[in-house]
C-alpha cells in the first residue's frame, strides 16, 4: 500500500461497522449463546484447544494467570449473601466477542488486529509486535498473550503430541497476542468453497469448534445477514440490534420477557455475541 493508496483508502482501511451506509454483505458472522442451556461442562473449551493449537501452559504458569484458553467458562454465584447456592451456579462461556467497534483494533500500533469485511476482528500473528495494548483495552479480557515460546517448549507439545496440531492454524511463538477467531480457518474454507460455486455459505455449512462440540447445543453460530440463519432469527426474536448500545427492549419499564443481551454493551463495543439469560423456575 503506497502513501496515496493509504490516504485514499484510509476510511476503508479503518472501516468500522456499524455504519448505516455500509451494511454487512454478504456475511456477518455472529453467535448466540443460551446460558440457560449451557451446563458448564467445558467441552467447548477442549474443542477449542484441539482445533486452534492452544498450548497447555501447565500448573505453574496457570498459577501466574498465564493460561491461554481462548474460550473460558466462567462460573458465577449470586451477588448477595447466601448460605447455599440454591439456584445453582451460572455458567458463562466467554471468548472474543468479535466486537464491531472493537476497542482493541484502534489501539494496536502496527495494525495487527483489524476488522474484516465479514465482521470478524482479525488477529495477525506475524504482524504483532506484542505491545499488548489490545489486551489492555479489551473490556472482556479475552485476548491471550504468548508469554513463553510454546512451540519450542518440551512440556507443551513434546514429540508425537505435536502431530495433533492443526495445520490450518498457525502455531504461535512467543511475544504475540492471540484470541478466539470464530474458527476463521473453517469460515474461510467454507467461504472459498461457496465462492467457487457462486453462492454464499449456507446455514449449517460451517460450524465453530465450540458449537460443534457443545453437548447441549447452547451455542448457535452463523451469518447474521442471512435471514435463513438461526442466529439471525434468534437475534431478531430477542430484538437485539447490532448498532445500538442499549436495546429498545431494555428500556421497557419492568423489563421485557426477552432474554437476549450483550455483555458490557454500554461501553459500545457492539459485540457480535448475544447471550440468552439463564432461566430459573419460579414455582420451586
Amino acid at each position: 500500500m503506497s502513501v496515496s493508496n493509504l490516504l485514499e483508502n484510509w476510511s476503508q482501511f479503518r472501516h468500522f461497522h456499524p455504519v448505516d451506509d455500509k451494511p454487512h454483505d454478504p456475511y456477518k458472522w455472529a453467535m448466540s449463546i443460551d446460558i440457560d442451556a449451557c451446563s458448564g461442562c467445558n467441552a467447548c473449551s477442549v474443542a477449542c484447544y484441539a482445533e486452534n493449537n492452544i498450548p497447555v501452559v501447565g500448573k505453574e504458569r496457570f498459577q501466574h494467570g498465564q493460561q491461554m484458553h481462548w474460550m473460558r467458562i466462567e462460573r458465577y454465584w449470586p451477588d448477595h449473601d447466601f448460605d447455599f447456592p440454591e439456584q445453582g451456579a451460572e455458567f458463562l462461556p466467554m471468548m472474543c466477542q468479535q466486537c464491531e467497534a472493537a476497542p482493541c483494533e484502534t489501539v494496536c500500533p502496527v495494525g495487527a488486529t483489524n476488522h474484516t469485511a465479514d465482521g470478524l476482528n482479525s488477529q495477525i500473528y506475524n504482524r504483532c509486535i506484542g505491545s499488548r495494548y489490545c489486551s489492555a483495552n479489551c473490556p472482556f479480557k479475552v485476548r491471550y498473550f504468548n508469554w513463553y515460546d510454546y512451540p519450542t517448549d518440551e512440556t507443551v507439545w513434546p514429540a508425537e503430541m505435536n502431530r495433533q496440531l492443526n495445520p490450518d492454524v498457525s502455531v504461535r511463538g512467543k511475544g504475540v497476542m492471540e484470541k478466539c477467531t470464530f474458527c476463521v480457518q473453517r469460515l474461510r474454507a467454507a467461504e472459498v468453497t461457496a465462492k467457487g460455486e457462486g453462492r454464499i455459505v449456507r446455514e449449517g455449512e460451517v460450524q465453530t469448534a465450540c458449537q460443534q462440540a457443545c453437548p447441549t447445543s447452547a451455542i448457535s453460530f452463523g451469518n447474521l445477514v442471512d435471514p435463513e440463519s438461526r442466529v439471525h432469527k434468534q437475534w431478531q426474536a430477542q430484538q437485539v440490534e447490532m448498532n445500538v448500545d442499549e436495546q429498545e427492549k431494555d428500556k421497557e419499564p419492568g423489563g421485557s420477557h426477552l432474554r437476549g443481551y450483550r455483555i458490557l454493551e454500554e461501553l459500545r463495543p457492539y459485540p457480535s455475541v448475544m447471550y440468552l439469560e439463564r432461566v430459573r423456575e419460579s414455582a420451586i
Binding site: 458465577y76 432469527k233 434468534q234 420477557h257 432474554r259 458490557l264 454500554e266 439463564r278 423456575e281 419460579s282
Partner: peptide
C-alpha cells in the same frame, strides 16, 4: 459485582415458546 454479565430471569418473566 453488579455488572451486567451473567443474567438470570425466572420462568414467569419469559416466554420460551416465542423463542427461536
Amino acid at each position: 459485582e453488579q455488572r451486567r454479565i451473567a443474567l438470570s430471569k425466572s420462568t414467569d418473566q419469559v416466554k420460551l415458546s416465542e423463542e427461536v
